[in-house]
Design a protein around this nucleic acid. Sequence first.
DNA 1: TTGAAAGCGCTACCAC
DNA 2: GTGGTAGCGCTTTCAA
Lengths: 349, 349
Amino acid sequence: MSDALPSPPATRAPRPTMRDVAALARVGIKTVSRVLNNEPNVSPETAERVHRAAAQLHYEINSVAGNLRRSGNSTKTVGLVVGHVANPFSGHIHAGVEEVLYPQGYSVLAASLDDDAEREQRLVREFLRRRVDGLILTTISAEQTYLLPELSRGLPVVFVDREPCGVTADAVVGDNAGGAREATAHLIAHGHRRIACLADRDSLSTSVHRVEGYRLALKEAGLPYEPELVTTNINSADAARAAVTALLARAEPPTAIFTAQNLITIGGIHALRDAGLQHTVALMSFDDFTLADALDPGISCVTQDPRSMGALAGRKLLERLGGDDSVASTIVSPTTLIARGSGEIPAPR
Amino acid sequence: MSDALPSPPATRAPRPTMRDVAALARVGIKTVSRVLNNEPNVSPETAERVHRAAAQLHYEINSVAGNLRRSGNSTKTVGLVVGHVANPFSGHIHAGVEEVLYPQGYSVLAASLDDDAEREQRLVREFLRRRVDGLILTTISAEQTYLLPELSRGLPVVFVDREPCGVTADAVVGDNAGGAREATAHLIAHGHRRIACLADRDSLSTSVHRVEGYRLALKEAGLPYEPELVTTNINSADAARAAVTALLARAEPPTAIFTAQNLITIGGIHALRDAGLQHTVALMSFDDFTLADALDPGISCVTQDPRSMGALAGRKLLERLGGDDSVASTIVSPTTLIARGSGEIPAPR
DNA sequence: TTGAAAGCGCTACCAC
DNA sequence: GTGGTAGCGCTTTCAA
């Protein structure tokens, strides 16, 4: 009984090379190279013969071999390290990078940090062995001095989301302090005086900046900074849920909460619901998520634009690849406040 | 005023080669190769000298050049095409693939389909030029016969999420028909007789299978199939919102809705809320999303495990890369029903 | 307009 | 143990 679909043989056949195409077209190998790379000075008839032979053999040019010899020794490949590809924030960064780099002929080797500082270095090393033309990195390690030899060699590196530590390099970051300040000021404007702040690990500069923004807003409003309302080093939704539950159980509970990260917001929402306080205690989130507007109340937030951040990082890298030698800069991508209800719950009087 | 941080020169310095290391260590280039590849038959003293020289020059082996000569002509690179890297479903597939391939020394070139069939072919072609060892593909094109030359050459290709068309190859897909059938049967079990079905484009096999599952459940329950309750070719949340709104405005509106995809569910939720019917009309979603349990009512769904699907696809590819010549197979990854409230709203009597 | 030869950085093979 | 030489598939250079 024969299958309707063409069933391919499982044998591994060698790929044709330019030499095979040249032989079939009865020309020199260099002529094949010229034709397939659209170089001038080939007669139309010869070009036609070459194209026909290439098509017949299903030949695809080998850019790996080509780039080995080609000037600049470039691979037209960029290494991208993000927090985790399964995280939508990382996904949007990836999308922005892709959007900018693929049209310019670059391919993207993507990998996840997975909260592992060692992995960060392993991945960078692997990318270097593959001779990527540049790197776009979200980092987790305490400092990136391990990149110094590469940077001093002129390898373009752009940091995204988190600023580098111990090295000078381009970076694209969200306005963490500014966004946190705006979120906190928003709560203050609705009458709140006791505002809790829940943040991620202190080892992350993003997290530290958000707490700073929170403090700045308090200071600007002449409110005291009360350490017992601030919990940091929260790294899961469950931890956030527990932390918020503990805060609400205090003698003087906060009347508003600023959750400085996505997962923390999710844990916070659960905790408020557990206590039946979702319409009583105000909540502002740093970072948005799907259906935040479908919850009751809708979740107010300040949101970054990770896709734009990825695109900016990609663009910066392209400039460096193009030979831009100007001094390293940090681009701050603005945040946007979205009011949906949870952040506009007034303070009790 | 001097910067505290080391500011790297912007000049592009050439990378050291094995020859440079060999010269510095006063050994032959082949010895450097042996040491750096952990091959035997090198005296400890020589190895030490080589390691020292390599470290001094910050030399990293060039795996691109090495693989050119190495047996099998492999690049230890795999090309991955997903729907869109910014989509969490795609992100989880990517994560699963990564999780399986990186430990085996493979790197992943990732790219997004972006709903563009031409892009699919462009990306595959680019990957072929980069001589990837294998491909993991989510497809959008009507048929993939353009892959036949590669498949017959023995290039390992694993399709993920959507089954191939026009070619025989391994695939990992979710249980689209089974999941849809289970979701629909769940609604029927809660007394519903008029169940709407909203699905994505008919050109997607996944979508077609989900509608089939819906029909099968109706049939098994002895319920009639009413075409006016089925809307397909919905490709955005807004379109879904409009479609549900239209359904609810009918003379005999459905008492339950099966939304056969993520974005459609989101649009459907909005439409039900617009009409104030979220506690009246039952809703089952195909695919889960963050905070689905925090909505009121919680959204019941059947969910796939895209991470596992990615891992299965990666594992299959590794087997093929390892020389497995067995006949192509399709792995069906099961779905799970999660009851949260929206799917358990009973039919009015 | 065409192609032969050299060489990109490395590994396979074989001599020492 | 060690290292030269050939060659992976291509582009560069240069001569025809």
